[in-house]
Design a protein around this nucleic acid. Sequence first.
DNA 1: TACATCCATGTAATCGATTACATACCCTCG
DNA 2: CGAGGGTATGTAATCGATTACATGGATGTA
Lengths: 354, 354
Amino acid sequence: MARIKDVAAHAGVSAATVSRVLNDNPSVTEDTRNRVYAAMTALNYVPNAVARSLRTEATKTLGLIIGDILNPFFTELARAVEDEAREAGYTVVIGNADERADQQDHYVRTLLEQRVDGLLICPTAEITPLIEEVTRGDRPLVFLDRTLPGMDVPSVRADGTQAIRQLIGHLRDLGHRRIAFISGPGTLSTGRERTEAFLMAAAENGLEIPEEYIQMGDFRAGSGQVLTSTLLDLPEPPEVIFLGDNLMALGALDEIRLRGLRIPNDIALASFDDVPWFAHIHPPITAISQPTAELGRRAVRVILDSLHGKPAESVVLPAVLVVRESCGEAGEGRQNRAAGQGGREARETERGTS
Amino acid sequence: MARIKDVAAHAGVSAATVSRVLNDNPSVTEDTRNRVYAAMTALNYVPNAVARSLRTEATKTLGLIIGDILNPFFTELARAVEDEAREAGYTVVIGNADERADQQDHYVRTLLEQRVDGLLICPTAEITPLIEEVTRGDRPLVFLDRTLPGMDVPSVRADGTQAIRQLIGHLRDLGHRRIAFISGPGTLSTGRERTEAFLMAAAENGLEIPEEYIQMGDFRAGSGQVLTSTLLDLPEPPEVIFLGDNLMALGALDEIRLRGLRIPNDIALASFDDVPWFAHIHPPITAISQPTAELGRRAVRVILDSLHGKPAESVVLPAVLVVRESCGEAGEGRQNRAAGQGGREARETERGTS
DNA sequence: TACATCCATGTAATCGATTACATACCCTCG
DNA sequence: CGAGGGTATGTAATCGATTACATGGATGTA
C-alpha cells in the first residue's frame, strides 16, 4: 500500500508537501498540487487514517452504543446519528449492547481504545463502574433516549408525559376503565418516567389502577408476551394493555393471537414507540410516537458542541399520540382512513421539525 | 490520557515491559506483571488502539456496508456479523449505503482509509469504479447477500429458487393463475435471480405470466406501493402479488389498505424476506425466509479465513417457504394456528442450523 | 574459577502521517 | 546593488505503541 513518501517521491516533492495537499493548505502552487494529485492516482494512494489520527489526536469518529440493534427505534436513531455525523465529516462506530451491561461495557472499552472523539450512549439499566468512570472522564459524552439517575451527563431524550396523558384521556373517552401498563426496567429513565406519567394521568382521570396492573418488563419481546399472559390470567383482567415499547408490543400481539383474542373487542392495545408496520396490522395500533430521527440529530449536535468547547445542554423533545384503531371505536371507514392519515402526517411533521 | 510510558514510569519498568504485559507475553515475572497491572489501574490506563494499529498494521476491525439500515433484513444481518466478529476479537464498523452508490463509495473510501482488516459489502445495483478497484485490491473482501455480475469475489448469499418453486406450487394449489412479481433491480443478483426463478417456476406450473406482471422495483417501500398500484390498475389485474423483499411488501400493504381491498379475497400477497411482524398482521403474510443470521456468520468466517491465508470459498444457503394465510384458504382456526406455529418453527430451525 | 546458557528486561528503530521551524528563492524598493 | 519581506518547500521531531536485538544477572557445568 502506497505511503505518503511514495507519493512524494513519485511527484518529486517532500512528504510535507503531499501532506499539505491532502489538507488543502493554500500555500501550495497549483502546479505542484497537480503533480501530487497525479502521483496519488498513479499509485492508488489512500491516506492512512490510523497514522493521521495518531499524530492529530483526533479520529473524526463518534461511538454510538444502542440498546438493541433489532429494535427499529434504535435503528432509526442510529441512522439519524450517522446522517448528521457524516455531514459534519465524522464516521460513526455502532456498538450493540443487546440490553446487556457487560456487552455495553465491552463496547465502551473498545470505543475508548479506538479513541473516538465523542460517545453517544443509550445506557442499559445497570450502572457499571466503567460507565461511572466514563462520566467522570473528559471525553465528550451524551446519554441518548435514556438517562441514568444521579449522573451529571447531558442527555437527549423524548418526554412522553403529555402524550401519555392524552392517551389515557382517549381511553377514558372510549369508556375504558381497567387499564394495565407493561413498563420498562425501573432503573431506566424511559421505564420509570413512563410509569409515573401513566399513574399520574390515571389519577387525574379518576381511574384506579390496581398494583397488579403495573408489570415491569425489560423492553424485549419475550417479556411483553409473558406479562401480557400474566395480565390476561388475572381474576379481573384489564380492558386495555399499554405497552412500554414496540418490542414488548410485538410480544403482546403474539400472546393475544395465540389465545385467539380479538383487538380491540376482547382486549385493547396501545404502545409507546411507533414503528412503520403498526399502521399496517389489523387493526392498526394506537401508539405514542417519538421524534426519533430528531433525537439522533440533536445528540450529534450536542457532542459536536462539546467538541468545539461550547457547553453541552440537554435536550427534551415531546412525543406525540397517534390514534389508530386498536383501542376501539374509530368509527366507520371514512374516519378510519382519516385517522390513519393523521398518524402518517404526524410522523412526517416530526421529521419536518428538524 | 495516560500513555504506556507513564504506566512504565509508575511501575518502575520500561515501556517494552508494559507492552509485553498488554500482549500476554509469557516472559514477564509474575511480580512485574502485578506491578504493571497496579500502575495501569492507578493511572486509568486505556491502551491506544490507534498507535497499536499503526505499528502492527492490523486494526482488528471489519467494515460492513449494508444496503439499508432501516430494512430489518440488514439489521439482522449486521447483528449476526457483529456477534461472530466480536467472538473472534474484531470490531465491526457499519456503513449504511442507503441503496445509493455514492454513499456506498463514501463508506468504501472511509473504511479503506481506516485500514479495516476486511470488507463485507452488500453491493448496491451500480458498479462503481471504486468497487471495481477494491475487488482488484488485496484487502480481504466478500460480497454479502448480493453478488455483482462478472466479478471474481467470494460471496455469501441465500438461494431462493427452490422456495420460489414451492411458493408457485402453493399458489397453483390454491387455484391462483394470475401471479405478478415485483422484483428488485435487475443489476443485483437478488433482483435478477428471483425473477428468473419466478418465471421458471411459473413455466413449470403451466402458468402464463404476461410481461406487465413483472415489475422492477428498487427494494424500497415506495416502489412497492407505486408498482402495486400499477398492477391493480391493469385491465386484468393479478390475483396474487409476490413482492421481492419485505420493504416493498410494506409499500404494497399501504396501497392495498388505502384502496380498502381485503387480503387474500380481493388480492393475495406473498413476500420474499420474512420479518417478525409478518406473523402478526392480519392475515399473517406468507413469505420466503432467508437464513439471515447464518449468512452474516458465514460471511465473517469467510473473511477470517481470508485473513489467515486460507482460500475464501463462496457460500450459498437455501431459503425456505413459510406458508401463512395471505394467499388464501388456510382452513379453519386450528389449521391457522398450526400454520403459524409451523412458520415460527421453521425460523427457529434456520437459526439452529448454525 | 571460568565460561556457556538462559531468562527477564531495557534500548532504540519503526509504523505513516502532521507541523513547527528552517531555508532558499524571488521580488520590491530605497 | 543590497536589505527586507513574502512565499513555496524541505527538514526533522512527534504521536503511542510494538519488537528485534542488546544487555546483564543468575544458574549450571567442567
